[in-house]
Computed example of a mutant assay.
Amino acid sequence: MTDKVFDNNQVSIAGEVISEFEYSHDVFGEGFYTIDVSVGRLSNSSDVIPLMISERLMDVKKSYVGKYIEILGQFRSYNRHEENRNRLVLSVFVREVKICDEGYESPKPNYIFLDGYVCKQPIYRKTPLGREIADILLAVNRPYGKSDYIPCICWGRNARFAENFTVGGHIQVFGRIQSREYQKKVGDEDFERRVAYEVSVSKLECIEDN
Score class of each variant (00 low, 15 high):
32 F>A: 06
161 F>T: 07
157 R>E: 15
178 Q>D: 09
31 G>S: 04
53 I>T: 10
156 G>H: 11
6 F>V: 06
114 L>D: 01
2 T>W: 15
104 Y>V: 02
6 F>R: 06
143 P>D: 09
137 L>S: 04
78 Y>A: 07
37 V>S: 00
160 R>K: 15
17 V>H: 02
174 F>C: 07
121 Q>A: 12
36 D>L: 14
47 D>Q: 05
29 G>K: 11
28 F>T: 07
80 R>N: 13
206 C>P: 02
50 P>R: 14
25 H>E: 11
134 A>E: 01
176 R>I: 02
204 L>A: 11
152 C>S: 04
106 S>T: 08
205 E>Y: 15
113 F>E: 10
75 F>V: 08
74 Q>K: 14
76 R>I: 10
134 A>H: 03
210 N>K: 14
73 G>T: 04
144 Y>W: 13
188 D>H: 05
196 A>H: 10
117 Y>E: 10
155 W>C: 01
141 N>I: 11
191 F>S: 01
71 I>H: 08
73 G>S: 00
48 V>N: 07
190 D>E: 15
13 I>M: 05
138 L>S: 05
177 I>G: 00
5 V>A: 06
46 S>L: 09
182 Y>R: 08
119 C>L: 03
101 D>K: 09
74 Q>W: 04
106 S>Q: 11
209 D>I: 15
134 A>I: 03
129 L>F: 13
178 Q>G: 04
201 V>W: 05
13 I>Y: 06
171 I>H: 04
81 H>Q: 12
152 C>I: 12
66 G>M: 13
78 Y>L: 11
